[in-house]
């Protein structure tokens, strides 16, 4: 009797251990994918800089990162690929889009959390949720079919010739529209979690409702709001398909002109991949590598600023 019990128990323990190890493996596997991604991108992305690319010549890292031209010649020479202007335009576009999406997103959040009557708030919250769940390709379609036309006609009004509306401005608008829901959702949570006593205190001291909202609530929630901005920037930096439909695929030259065509790191990766090996193929992984580095650095800097901002007490 007791023997049966012990075998049963040991069998149970065996199964338990087996399950434990099996599940652990799955968790390890999940965690390992980040290394798979990292190593694939690194191995492929570094190839152009380390080998002579089947006789086309080694790509110089410094010219690649600082250069001003992306392949405007078909002969696939190593010296023709560079992403300097793409890094700057990417950051420029993301910054401009944040200029729109940040205030709009935060104020929408404030509206939903503090100002709107309950029913209206619920309605607007659903609107933001729906906007957040719309796939980026639909934003892209909307951009290509609608924003491009509007921007083109607007540019005509001011007497500038834009190239069919493909421009920095269109890209910025699309990115802003796509990041507003992210910013709104995260800031709303931050705003709602502001201590009610703080608000009542402010009102009791004679501040108006609006003053309280802007000076007390937003200040108290600033850390959460900043996180929202960081998430928004992350989404904007990595966005590819929607942007590629409105950017215009600029190949060379830095331009800050709002109505000029443009390109970002991601649109360049998506464009014109013809080979399945060799330099023209590997170089896209190098761009991916640069994109990851840009994202990491931006995130790091923004988090640094967030910590600084968190310390300063804003009046």
């Amino acid at each position: 009797m007791s023997r049966i019990n012990t075998t049963l128990r040991s069998k149970k323990i065996l199964i338990d251990q087996f399950a434990h190890q099996g599940l652990k493996t799955l968790a390890l596997l999940s965690a390992s994918f980040i290394f798979l991604i990292g190593s694939v991108i690194l191995v492929k992305g570094l190839t152009p800089f380390l080998t002579d690319n089947d006789g086309l010549g080694r790509v110089g890292l410094i010219p690649f990162i600082t250069g001003n031209v992306w392949l405007i010649d078909p002969t696939f020479q190593s010296s023709l690929y560079s992403v300097g202007f793409l890094i700057i335009t990417t950051l420029y576009i993301v910054f401009l889009s944040l200029l729109i999406s940040f205030p709009v997103g935060v104020l929408t959040a404030l509206f939903i959390a503090k100002i709107a009557p309950k029913k209206l708030a619920e309605c607007f919250r659903s609107v933001v949720e729906i906007l957040a769940s719309i796939p980026s390709i639909i934003y892209g379609l909307f951009g290509a079919g609608f924003i491009l036309k509007i921007v083109y006609q607007m540019s005509q009004l001011v007497g500038v010739q834009s190239k069919g509306g493909n421009s920095v401005l269109s890209t910025v608008i699309i990115l802003a529209l796509m990041t507003i829901p992210t910013i709104t959702t995260v800031s709303e949570v931050a705003i709602r979690s502001v201590d009610q006593r703080l608000i009542e205190g402010s009102l009791a001291l004679g501040a108006s409702f609006t003053q309280t909202n802007f000076k007390v609530v937003l200040t108290a929630a600033k850390s959460g709001i900043f996180t929202a901005a960081i998430l928004g920037v992350g989404r904007a930096l990595g966005e590819a398909t929607a942007v590629s439909l409105v950017a215009g695929g600029r190949r060379s030259g830095l331009s800050f002109d709002l109505l000029d065509t443009t390109a970002t790191l991601t649109t360049t990766m998506l464009e014109g991949m013809k080979e399945s090996q060799g330099l023209d193929y590997n170089i896209r992984f190098s761009v991916g590598m640069v994109l990851l580095v840009v994202i990491l650095i931006t995130n790091f800097l923004l988090n640094l600023i967030k910590r600084k901002v968190g310390k300063i007490h804003v009046k």
Partner: peptide, 30 residues
Amino acid sequence: RKAQDFLLQFGTYFAAFFSFATLSLIIFFI
């Protein structure tokens, strides 16, 4: 202060309306 409050208030209404308008436009467009 009234004017200031009004402006700020207007800003939040405008922002909220903006999200709403975007969604309506996208849906209308497609």
